[in-house]
Simulated assay, not measured.
Amino acid sequence: MSEYQSRRTEEGFRRLIAFSDAVVAIALTLLVLPLADIPDEIADETSVGTVLSDHLSDIVSFAVSFIVIWVLWRNHHRMMENFRAYDKVLFELHFVWLLTIVILPFVTAMMDNRHVDRANAAYIGVLAVSIMSLVAMTAWGRRHRELLIAGEDTEDWLAHRSGVGTLLLLMVALIIAIVVPDADVWPLLLLLLSGPLENLLRRFR
């Protein structure tokens, strides 16, 4: 491999993070587009309360997906605060993570269409892959300490963050969504147990 191909500069690392942030921002913006079309569909005089009531499922779906993408970005941001450099594997893992971020508005729109069977399973599946890529980045940093910032804060992050518990709960939620298609996104409430489960797994480690 040539020196140019193997070069990993600090500027390249900053561009990787900036590009990731931009993709997340665009994905968050795309989520609101279906809601922006609602006023154009109103033919008769009505109230704001009626509009909100008639499109409650769309609004809830938007809110859930917005929060989900925000949480994914927040976890990514906190994770990358402990990295000082990148390599080919970390670069490619970002590709996978960003792909899931871009797809999330699409699967969200599918969930809004009641004629799409098991759209909730597709949504949870994409979310699971997204979490899996973040878990893989963390594991890769743990194995390649030269990519990390040396210090107590990084060691504390490695000791308390794995994401495996969250991933396991998502897999359970995915199974429920496949077996019970009418469950909608309610299986995602299992993620409320991610904190206690992560603490339990940390004790075993």
Rank of each mutant, 00 (worst) to 15 (best):
N75K: 04
H76D: 05
H77G: 02
H77Q: 12
H77N: 13
R78F: 14
R78I: 11
R78S: 10
M79E: 12
M79C: 11
M79H: 04
M80Q: 13
M80E: 10
E81V: 03
A85N: 14
Y86E: 04
D87L: 12
L90A: 13
L90C: 13
F91G: 07
L93A: 06
L93I: 01
H94D: 11
F95S: 09
F95C: 05
F95L: 14
W97G: 01
W97M: 07
L98M: 15
L98V: 00
T100F: 01
T100Y: 03
I101Q: 00
I101C: 07
V102D: 09
I103S: 06
I103D: 00
P105L: 04
F106Y: 11
V107H: 04
V107C: 07
V107L: 09
T108N: 15
A109K: 02
M110L: 12
M110T: 01
M110V: 03
M111E: 04
D112C: 13
R114N: 14
R114A: 07
R114D: 12
H115K: 04
V116K: 04
V116E: 13
R118T: 02
R118M: 11
R118Y: 14
N120Q: 12
N120E: 15
N120H: 12
A121Q: 08
Y123H: 11
Y123R: 06
I124N: 05
L127Q: 03
A128Q: 10
A128C: 11
S130H: 06
S130T: 15
S130Q: 04
I131N: 01
M132P: 02
L134A: 07
L134G: 05
L134S: 09
L134F: 13
V135D: 00
W140A: 03
W140M: 02
R142C: 00
R143I: 00
H144M: 08
H144G: 03
R145N: 11
R145M: 15
E146N: 10
E146T: 11
L147I: 08
L148I: 02
I149W: 05
I149F: 08
A150C: 04
A150G: 12
A150F: 06
G151M: 03
G151A: 13
E152V: 13
E152Q: 15
D153T: 08
E155M: 10
E155S: 01
D156E: 15
D156L: 14
W157V: 03
L158N: 12
L158R: 05
A159K: 11
H160E: 12
R161W: 11
G163A: 00
G163H: 01
G163Q: 00
V164N: 02
V164Y: 10
G165E: 07
L167F: 13
L168F: 00
L168K: 01
L168Q: 03
L170H: 08
M171W: 14
M171G: 13
V172Y: 04
V172Q: 04
A177Y: 03
A177Q: 01
I178G: 05
I178W: 05
I178Y: 03
I178A: 11
V180N: 09
P181T: 01
D182H: 14
A183H: 00
V185H: 07
V185E: 06
